[in-house]
Amino acid sequence: MKDLRIEGTKYTPEIIFDCTNKHFSISGNSRPENADAFFKEVFNWFEINGEEVMKLDAVGLIIDLEYFNSSSSKQILNILYKLEYLNPNNTVIKWYYDDEDEEILDAGKEFEEVTSLSFEFHKKR
């Protein structure tokens, strides 16, 4: 299985999907010029590695985003839906937010509302 590693930029998130080390994370900022095109690589990775993801006994997806725009929110939700489909019982979303940042916390709570996945909320400071 090939790991997915997309380097972060000022406007696009770092994405790591590493099944070997069971490290899954999306972090940084997400405001790509074309969210559909940017996240395509992630969904291609799921197409190839979906069966492996199904077999994992634990998937802890860290989401540590400073900011994401509306078209990224749709894509992030689609990633959650993929995990909900492939491995619903063993997936935990670890949602990180700054102490004072209610916007990011609320966004995480809303994702929790619209999926059946388990969420953990972690205050950063």
């Binding site: 074309n34 969210a35 509306s70 929110s73 749709k74 939700l77 619209v114």
Partner: peptide, 16 residues
């Protein structure tokens, strides 16, 4: 909308 709507051909989700 974020649950149901597709992405437009300009890459926006119509959510803005």
């Amino acid at each position: 909308k974020i649950k149901k709507r597709g992405i437009s051909n300009k890459g926006g989700a119509g959510l803005g």
